[in-house]
Amino acid sequence: MNIVVLVKQVFDTEAKIVIGADGKIDDSNVTLIMNPYDENAMEEALLLKEKFGGEVIAVSVGAAKAQETLRTALAMGADRAVLVSDSAIQPASDDFAAAQALAKAVSELKPDIILTGRVAIDYGSKIAGRVAEILGIPHVNTITKLEVEGDNAVATREIDGGSEVIEVPLPAVFSAQKSLNNPRYPTVAGIMKAKKKELKTLTLADLGLDATVTGKMQIVGYSLPAGRKGGRVIPGEPAQAAAELARLLRAEAKII
């Protein structure tokens, strides 16, 4: 079974966002990590490989630095990796272009299953549905369970107020919710082996694409949320403070 995992390099969740002098997000002092939901996708791919054999290939679109994230995927157990890196793409935010590039790169790998995270925590990217659409295959998002039976897969996906059990023919794209599994750590041995595994870098031209796929939507400015100020601390014994809070929420904030 060939399994492709789409992974994205993102800012660490604890990163503080700073807008630089050029008006753009400053990434100079930021720790970069694998998108957390993509870790769940990686784990699921490795579990499938352990069960059915085959190959796990990690694919990413990103800057040259995104190699680090692919190395992490290799250290977790991916067999090889492909990075699409091209100065024409703003890989973090241009989901349309990223999806086109990923779909092209993926189609050449002829996967049975494509896994990725349900969302990228940086630009809120939802790449899975777009890639599935370009490839013309089904997509089940926010999955919390995945079982492969022959040429079909049965996935449980989270919806508002419950879940759905969905059967799809393969190949198909699945995007992972956090509760899908518990991602493994890479191991020291995995890290040592990762550097010997293949990591191929491709440009848009290598994929037969050009810059016309980029920039369908453009970011015209960044801002930071208006800083909230700490309000007032309500003093007193618990019962007294609670009573005062309830009064304020009714009289002043007019909520309850």
Binding site: I191, A194, K195
Partner: peptide, 8 residues
Amino acid sequence: DHQMMRKL
């Protein structure tokens, strides 16, 4: 490698 070990 060392950076990955640190992260791990």
